[in-house]
C-alpha cells in the first residue's frame, strides 16, 4: 500500500504504474492545513479521469474532530474508492458515528453500503486498548492498520528503528485483526534509503502476523512484495502438502506424514494460504506444476 500526498498531481497521476497492490491518496498528514480544499478537489478529479489499472485506490480522510473531516467525506464518499482510511480511530462508538455519516452520504447519492470498505487506523494508546471492539464490531471494516509515528508521539516515547515502543501495540492489533478475520497492515518505514532496514522490519511484520505493509516511496514496493511473497521452496512444499492431503482425504485418511513430519489440518490450512498468496492452483493429476512468477 503506497501513500501518495493528496495535493501532489505528479505523484497521483502515476499512482497506478508502480505495481503497488493499493495506493492511499492522503488528505490527512501529508497535506498542509491551508491546502485541504485543493487536495480534495484534485483527488476527486484524478479519481474520475486517471486509470490506476489493477491498483486499488483508497483515500485517507481527516478525522471528524478536525474542520476537514466532514467535507472530506462529502467529497470522497460519492467517488466510492475501494476503501476509506480513517485516522486515529479510538473506539467502536466513533466508528459507528463515521459509518452513519458515510451511509447518509451514500444514500443521498443512491450508492450501496457494502462496496466501499473502511480501514481503521490505530495510532493512539486509546485505539490500541479498544482495537478488538473496533475491528470486530462492523463488517464494513475489512482492515486495520497501525500508525507508528503518531502512536509513539501519543505514548510520549521516542520512535526507535527497532520498534521497541510499539511492539506490544503491533502484536495486540494483529491479534484483534486475526480474531476478526480481517487484514492487518503494518506502519511505514520512514528511511527510504535504508533498504536493509526496510527488509528486516518487513520480515518481522510478516513473522508476527501482518498481511501487508504501507510504503511512502515506490522504491520500497519491491522489497515488501519480496518479503510477503512466499519463496519458491515454500510454495513447492505447500503444493505437495495440499496435494497429498487431498489424495489422502479422498482415501479417507486425515493425518499423514511427509518427510517424517506430521501433517494435520492446521498445517494444511497454512499451506493453502501460501498457495493462495502465490496465486498457485492445484492442478488435476498429471498436469505440470505451474511455474512461480
Amino acid at each position: 500500500m503506497l501513500y501518495i500526498p493528496g495535493n501532489n498531481p505528479a505523484m497521483i497521476q502515476q499512482g497506478g504504474v508502480y505495481g503497488a497492490d493499493s495506493i492511499l491518496l492522503d488528505l490527512e498528514d501529508s497535506v498542509a492545513l491551508n491546502q485541504k480544499d485543493a487536495a480534495r478537489i484534485l483527488i476527486r478529479n484524478m479519481m474520475r479521469t486517471i486509470d490506476f489499472y489493477d491498483t486499488e485506490v483508497c483515500v485517507r480522510v481527516n478525522h471528524l474532530g478536525t474542520p476537514f473531516g466532514l467535507a472530506d467525506l462529502e467529497e470522497i464518499v460519492p467517488l466510492q474508492p475501494s476503501a476509506i482510511r480513517y485516522p486515529k480511530t479510538e473506539s467502536a462508538e466513533e466508528v459507528g458515528n463515521l459509518l452513519e455519516i458515510i451511509e447518509k452520504i451514500e444514500d443521498k447519492h443512491g450508492l450501496p453500503h457494502h462496496v466501499m470498505t473502511i480501514h481503521a487506523m490505530i495510532e493512539t494508546a486509546m485505539g490500541v486498548q479498544n482495537v478488538f471492539e473496533i475491528a470486530s464490531k462492523f463488517p464494513r471494516i475489512d482492515a486495520i492498520t497501525i500508525g507508528g509515528q503518531d502512536l509513539t508521539a501519543d505514548m510520549n516515547i521516542i520512535y526507535t528503528p527497532d520498534g521497541a515502543g510499539i511492539d506490544f501495540a503491533r502484536k495486540r492489533i494483529v491479534m484483534a485483526a486475526k480474531a476478526s478475520h480481517i487484514d492487518i497492515i503494518d506502519t511505514v518505514f520512514p528511511d527510504v534509503n535504508d533498504e536493509e532496514g526496510l527488509r528486516k522490519e518487513t520480515e518481522y511484520a510478516r513473522k508476527i502476523g501482518f498481511t501487508g505493509k504501507a510504503v511512502i516511496n515506490p522504491r520500497q514496493i519491491d522489497i515488501i512484495h519480496n518479503v510477503f511473497t512466499p519463496t519458491e521452496e515454500e510454495v513447492r512444499k505447500a503444493y505437495r502438502i495440499v496435494k497429498e492431503f487431498r489424495a489422502n482425504a479422498a482415501a479417507g485418511q486425515g493425518v499423514f506424514a511427509i518427510d517424517g513430519k506430521m501433517i494435520d489440518t492446521p498445517v494444511v490450512r497454512r499451506a493453502e494460504y501460501i498457495l493462495q498468496l502465490a496465486h498457485v492452483e492445484i492442478l488435476p493429476e498429471g498436469a505440470d506444476e505451474k511455474p512461480i512468477t
Binding site: V17, Y18, D222
Partner: peptide
C-alpha cells in the same frame, strides 16, 4: 537513479 519512475521502467 533514485527516480521511482525510471526504476520501475528499468525493473
Amino acid at each position: 537513479t533514485n527516480s521511482p519512475m525510471d526504476l520501475r521502467i528499468a525493473k
